[in-house]
Amino acid sequence: MLRDMYSNILKIHNNLQSRTDARVKDYPLMKSPVEMTTILLAYVFFSVYVGPRLMANRKPFSLKKPMVVYNLSMVLLNAYIVYEFLMAGWGTTYTWRCDLVDTSNSPMTLRMIQAAWLFYFSKYIELLDTVFFVLRKKQSQITFLHVFHHSVMPWSWWWGITLTPAGGMGSFHALVNAVVHVIMYFYYGLSAAGPRFQKYLWWKKYMTAIQLTQFVVISIHISQYYFMEKCDYQVPLWIHMVWMYGIFFFLLFSNFWIQAYIKGNRLPSAKKLKMNGSTNDSISVVANGKHLENGHATHYSNGKVLMGKVKEI
């Protein structure tokens, strides 16, 4: 039985390798789904189990400078990804309607493939968001939405660029997501830089709205496929998956918006806070399931942050 199971798994693995587009086979993390799945499972295990236990009896790290460097580096990386997506098709030859997968080896196509892979690889770098939370003992910020979003994106994109690396209309959501991440990480960078930049963060309450708009735009664009008389997109499954992705994450982020901004469930309740100290730091809730602070709380107990003053937005 075990031998048959192993044989079937091996057949599936070999079939995937045979179907992997030759143009991306030599890119890092593209040879097999085993490697990337192992990384993402380790990420989830670290985020929800290992990390919090390692930090339970340790003082939180400040990491202010590393966070500023990291966030601003992510701004530059995502801005470059946006530029490459535009120059490789979305801003040059694409129609923004029924754009098919390009199977050629033209310089423009290879540039689109490189942009798609770079977007995919950036999702592994973004796992550092969670590492920073763990090291700073902000476990309450590592929500289901946060972990799910960070783990599902690179996993699903591996399948996408394995079979359709120059994804045509199926890659539009990556362009939009990279644009949103330029804005998002710019905000994070300013926030991590300290209270003196607070006056430049007046637009923080709109971060969730930007995320929700992202999913609406993605869903509208991909929905064109269902109303066209003819669109011979080579892998219709990706169209359906992108549509479901847009709707599913719109619902998740809408629920976050309702819980955080309407019901206030994700914001600390003054009655639950231990008033054994105070801080002038304010806390805000943003779109990716994170509570971002414009400073650092000063009191800790068993890895939980106890704040004296909280300014709700």
Rank of each mutant, 00 (worst) to 15 (best):
K263Q: 07
F253R: 00
Q139W: 10
H240F: 09
H221I: 02
W243A: 10
H173Q: 01
Y124C: 05
T162I: 03
I183P: 03
Q259G: 00
I161G: 05
W157H: 14
V216S: 00
W159M: 08
K230S: 05
G160F: 12
P195E: 00
F197S: 05
L267R: 15
M228H: 07
W238L: 15
Q259C: 12
V216H: 01
P195Y: 00
Y185H: 03
R136W: 08
M153C: 05
Y187V: 03
T143L: 02
S223Q: 05
G194T: 07
G167H: 12
S223E: 01
W155A: 09
G167E: 12
W158G: 01
V179W: 06
G168R: 15
F132L: 07
V176R: 06
H150E: 13
K204G: 06
L163Q: 04
N255L: 03
S171A: 14
M207C: 06
H149S: 08
D232T: 09
Y187T: 04
D129H: 04
F250V: 07
S219P: 02
Q198G: 01
Y245H: 13
F197Y: 15
R136Y: 03
L127E: 07
L128K: 11
W158I: 00
L237Y: 07
N265K: 12
V235D: 03
P268H: 04
E229A: 06
K205L: 05
